[in-house]
Design a protein around this nucleic acid. Sequence first.
DNA 1: TTAAAAAATGAATATATATTCATTTTCAGC
DNA 2: GCTGAAAATGAATATATATTCATTTTTTAA
Lengths: 223, 223
Amino acid sequence: MNIYSFSAREAGIPVFAINRKERDRKLRRMDILSAAEHVFGRKGYYKATMQDIARQAQYATGTVYLYFKDKETLYFSLVEEKMRDLLALIKERTAAVRDAQEKLKIYLEEKLDFFEKNQDFFRIFILENGAAQASIDSRIATSALAKEYLACISEIMRLAQKQKLVRADMDPSQGAGIFRSISNAVIMDWLKKNMQQTLSLRQMSRFILDIFLGGARPSDETK
Amino acid sequence: MNIYSFSAREAGIPVFAINRKERDRKLRRMDILSAAEHVFGRKGYYKATMQDIARQAQYATGTVYLYFKDKETLYFSLVEEKMRDLLALIKERTAAVRDAQEKLKIYLEEKLDFFEKNQDFFRIFILENGAAQASIDSRIATSALAKEYLACISEIMRLAQKQKLVRADMDPSQGAGIFRSISNAVIMDWLKKNMQQTLSLRQMSRFILDIFLGGARPSDETK
DNA sequence: TTAAAAAATGAATATATATTCATTTTCAGC
DNA sequence: GCTGAAAATGAATATATATTCATTTTTTAA
């Protein structure tokens, strides 16, 4: 079992040790990815050194290079694999319902759960989404996965328009951007105020949806 | 006159050349800041080299160091001075009205105008606001100015609550974060879709305010 | 138990670029 | 035009760290 947060979703590890060698290699690779997540998430790409990451993973510096070609590739793999996990979850869960509002709700819940478990990764994620120009590894901004992620939310937005849940005068990708931003702002606020103890992030999903759909105006009782 | 975007607001340049030496020095300093804005905004802090910046400013590498102690200080000065300009504008203009909705509107308009003129700076700004942890120069995240900027919007939010414009169950700083995120998302979208030609950013202010206050739901005509 | 193979090590190397500074150019006042 | 001061130059230096690789340690299988 992996005490860090890296997911085995993509590792394809068989329960029976049909191929121990390969399995072990994948596990070690995941250890390094977890260490990288920890260090990159806290220090940012440039301030994080390969030695930091190696130490965090309890390896010597050179060992990291047996698993990843170079620093950029390590970072790229990390971002890709985490995003793939998140996207897979979201797609799987939202595909199960037809209603746009329900899809939005599920999207939010999956995302909030995911980042509650992957707080270090959230900082990486937000930076990569923040300013595509400054994307550290240009492969990320242009990756099929990044486009797919955006397309997925835009698709939900389009459906929401068809179902008259969302105003029609809003470009779906713009709507997706706004929805994403609101949820990121709330996650950021939750992280900053360190509410981990008292409140689960998932509980914010109702609030976020309210704000996105109904806005910040009071729901007219006393006006 | 400065063909770049750096503002003279803080330069305190007298119309009559009482002190040409000092004035010239300030102008050259501003040239370097403009060059830095251009390069940092496009490449990001780490990929931007001092040589890039010097070349952009039409100086030799060493000359930059006659005006700024080191790269971090150059970056810090840039961020500080631009943010000071923006904050001064916002404070000045919003102070002139009492109505919270009017304040929000003015805040938006000033911000949109500002970033329409300072597109390179927007990317820097959004990164610095994105993930405080990864703030490039730790002085920025902790600077009085950064706090003041947030406090200023939070203050408007508090007033909006008092005036029943905004729901009361929302922490003012959280509301400020959400409001900021929405506007940033819209600016980002505008930049990405390269609408400079056809549509001024300022024209988006009505839309942003609508979304923030009233949400993305259609304004019930056909339901 | 042993020897070959695989994995890990970490000191040494390569590289990139921030920063310095001896030299050159420009400028101001005479 | 000349001279000393100020400004600018850009090649040389310093530094940090990504990457490599000769050596050591561990594992495997007979």
